[in-house]
Amino acid sequence: MGDNKLIALGKITSVFGIKGWVKVYSYTEPMNQILDYPEWILQLNGRRLVVRLNAGKVHGKGLIAHIKDCDDRDEALKYQGAEIYVVAEQLPELEDGDFYWHELEGLKVVTLNGTNLGVVDHMMSAGTANDVLVVRGNDSAIDHEERLIPYLMDEVVKNVDLTNGEILVDWQPDY
């Protein structure tokens, strides 16, 4: 694994049944996309473990998965609470103009008139509406305020420049 960047895709929340299945909370969109990765890197209590999936499926409103060689409830309990990661290079290529959330985190956010609003701390999903950039001010920004900026390409977000680490927004600091 070395220096490869790990991307969190979800979490194992609990066990399911008696045959080693686990319940999975997915951060992916759509949620069952997490099952497309046959190998997960689990992180639990400061330890990392690579596991392979045997099977996975939608169950009710959530997901369940079966990890290879995990064939009973006691074994599955060992994975409860583990964060699920994959190496960033495993993520599929996106079309031009589309970005993964982890690519936007840490980018500087600048208004059309050049005002530095801070950096993207993280992203939030607003449910059915658009996603939201959570921007935190810092010493080089106009202030130390936290701003929630709708991630609306072309309308609010005018340009994302990964090379220069900057997002250009049509947004006023006092919104």
Score class of each variant (00 low, 15 high):
residue 57 K to F: 04
residue 67 I to M: 09
residue 138 N to H: 09
residue 55 A to E: 13
residue 137 G to S: 05
residue 51 V to L: 08
residue 79 Y to C: 07
residue 117 L to C: 02
residue 92 P to H: 14
residue 52 R to P: 03
residue 56 G to A: 05
residue 109 V to L: 01
residue 65 A to Y: 14
residue 112 L to A: 05
residue 94 L to A: 13
residue 118 G to S: 05
residue 54 N to W: 09
residue 138 N to A: 03
residue 92 P to M: 13
residue 100 Y to N: 09
residue 118 G to K: 03
residue 113 N to H: 11
residue 75 E to S: 14
residue 96 D to T: 11
residue 128 T to S: 11
residue 89 E to C: 01
residue 112 L to I: 08
residue 132 V to G: 04
residue 133 L to N: 07
residue 108 K to C: 01
residue 111 T to G: 01
residue 82 A to W: 06
residue 58 V to C: 02
residue 69 D to I: 08
residue 113 N to R: 13
residue 128 T to Y: 03
residue 70 C to Y: 10
residue 73 R to A: 02
residue 118 G to R: 03
residue 77 L to C: 09
residue 121 D to L: 11
residue 78 K to D: 06
residue 123 M to V: 04
residue 65 A to Q: 11
residue 54 N to G: 09
residue 80 Q to G: 07
residue 132 V to N: 03
residue 71 D to T: 10
residue 117 L to A: 01
residue 63 L to W: 04
residue 101 W to A: 15
residue 100 Y to G: 06
residue 122 H to V: 04
residue 50 V to D: 07
residue 66 H to N: 13
residue 56 G to K: 10
residue 119 V to Y: 06
residue 86 V to C: 02
residue 128 T to R: 04
residue 66 H to I: 06
residue 71 D to C: 06
residue 91 L to W: 14
residue 130 N to Q: 13
residue 90 Q to C: 06
residue 115 T to K: 14
residue 67 I to S: 11
residue 126 A to Y: 10
residue 72 D to T: 02
residue 134 V to M: 07
residue 90 Q to M: 14
residue 107 L to A: 00
residue 55 A to P: 02
residue 133 L to F: 15
residue 70 C to E: 09
residue 136 R to L: 09
residue 108 K to N: 04
residue 66 H to A: 07
residue 60 G to T: 03
residue 68 K to S: 12
residue 86 V to W: 09
residue 124 M to S: 04
residue 80 Q to T: 14
residue 90 Q to I: 07
residue 107 L to Q: 00
residue 99 F to E: 04
residue 113 N to M: 08
residue 133 L to A: 08
residue 105 E to W: 05
residue 137 G to R: 06
residue 129 A to G: 12
residue 65 A to E: 11
residue 60 G to V: 05
residue 50 V to K: 15
residue 80 Q to V: 15
residue 94 L to R: 15
residue 138 N to F: 07
residue 84 I to G: 00
residue 102 H to P: 01
residue 63 L to C: 00
